[in-house]
Amino acid sequence: MKRIAILCPGRGSYTEKTLRTLPAGHPWVVRADELRAEYGLPTLSELDRAERFSQVLHLRPANVSLLIWLVTMLDSHAAMEQDECVAIAGNSMGWYTALAVGGALSFDDGFRLVQEMALLQERHAGGGQILYPLVGDDWRRDAARVEAVKAALASSNGHALPSIELGGFAVLAGTEDGIRHLLGALPQVKLGSNTYPFRLMQHGAYHTPLVQPVSDAALETLARLEFRAPRVTLVDGRGVRFTPWATDVAELVRYTLTTQVTDPYDFTKSVRVVLREHAPDELVLPGPGNTLGGICGQILCAEGWRGMQSKADFEREQAGARSLVRSLRR
C-alpha cells in the first residue's frame, strides 16, 4: 500500500474523451442525477451519453463543473480504497472537490457547493482568464517570460490581475479590456506544440476581486451547507492545512466562500506543502484528462524533488520503478 496525495483538477480538464465514462447505475451517479433534476438541469448521465461533444453544452460552467466533480469523486474513492491517502489538494474548482473527497462536506453538500458556485459565476459573468508559460521546454524558469508577465500586469491600469500560480504557468485574469491588453502585451511564445498566450474558454475572472459579487451571493445562498473537519488533511490555495485534528470550521467556510473566490490561488504552494509536510510516495491525479500531469512535474522539478531539475529528469523518474505522478485517466 502506497502513501498517496490526491490532487483534484479544475474546470479546464473536461474534453470529448471523457464522454461515456460515468458508470450507469452507480449510487453516486443516480444521486447526482436526482440533484440535477431539482435544479431543472440536464442530468449528468444525459450529458455523458451525448452522441457528440458540444463545447456550448458540455463546457457550460453549470454543466462541466459537475461532470468534472463527479468523475473526480469516483476516481478518488477508488484510489483511497487501494492506498493510504495522506493529503488532498486541488486546483481552483478542485478545492471544492477536495472538500467532498476529504469528508469536509457530504456528497449532497459537495454537489450543491459546486453547482451553486457555477450558476453564480454564470449569473455574474464577465472578464476572463489567459494562460502563459513561465518556463521553457526544459521546464526551467525563463526569466524573460516572468518579466514579461510582470510588465503586462503593471501596464494594464488595473484591468488585469494574477489569478493562479500553476507550476510552470501563470493564469492571469481581468476585465475584457484587461484580457485584450494581456493578449496584445505578452510576447507570443511556444511551449511544446502550443502557442501562448491563449484565452481559456468560458472562464471568468476567477480568483480576483472582480468576482466579489459571486462571493457575496455565495455567503447567502450556501449558508446552509454543513461543513465539518475533514477525515483527511486538506491543503488550500494558500498552502494552509485543515487537518482532522485541528480545523477551525468557521475559517474553512470563510476561506471557501470568500478568500478562495476573490484572492489569487497558489496551486504551486499547495503541492509544495503536500510534498514537504506529507512526503507522499505518489501524487494521484483523478478526474478527466491529464491537465495537472506536466504541471506537477514542473513543481517537482522546481522543488528539486529526488534531485530533479528538468523535464528530462522528470520523464526519467516517471519511467522508473517509482513513478511520482499517476494520472488515473491518461
Rank of each mutant, 00 (worst) to 15 (best):
M201E: 13
Q260L: 07
G204N: 14
L200E: 03
P213H: 05
F198Y: 15
L257P: 06
V235Y: 02
L219E: 13
Q202A: 13
R254V: 00
D236S: 07
L225A: 06
E226F: 00
R238C: 05
P197T: 02
A205Q: 05
A246E: 15
F227G: 01
R276E: 15
S215Q: 02
E251T: 11
H207N: 08
D216I: 01
L275H: 11
V273L: 10
D266Y: 13
S270T: 11
L257V: 12
G237P: 06
L200P: 04
D248M: 10
A229T: 09
D266V: 02
L200M: 12
Y196R: 05
E277L: 09
A205C: 07
V211T: 05
A218R: 02
S270A: 15
L219V: 09
R276M: 12
A223S: 14
R231D: 15
V211A: 01
T195K: 11
D216W: 00
T268S: 15
F227Q: 04
L275F: 06
L234V: 06
V271D: 08
A229D: 10
H207Y: 06
Y265G: 00
P244S: 08
L257R: 04
Q202K: 14
V274L: 11
R254S: 14
L252E: 05
P209E: 08
T221E: 11
T233I: 07
E277Q: 13
R276T: 14
E277A: 14
E220V: 10
E220P: 00
V235K: 03
V271L: 15
T256N: 07
T258M: 02
R254D: 15
Y196W: 10
V240K: 12
T208M: 05
A223F: 00
T262W: 03
R224C: 03
L234I: 13
D248P: 07
E220Q: 12
W245Y: 09
T243N: 09
E251R: 14
M201C: 01
M201T: 13
A229K: 09
S270Y: 11
Y206V: 09
V261A: 01
P213M: 05
T256P: 06
T195V: 14
S193P: 09
G239A: 08
K269A: 12
D216R: 10
T243L: 08
D248R: 11
T221P: 00
P213C: 06
H207F: 05
R228K: 15
V271F: 10
Q260Y: 03
F242P: 02
A223D: 14
V274W: 08
F198N: 10
L225N: 06
V253S: 02
V214D: 01
G237F: 02
L275W: 12
V232H: 04
A223N: 08
L225C: 08
P244F: 09
V274M: 12
R228W: 08
G237Y: 02
R238A: 03
D236T: 01
T259H: 10
V261E: 03
R228T: 13
D266N: 15
T247W: 11
P209V: 06
V261Y: 01
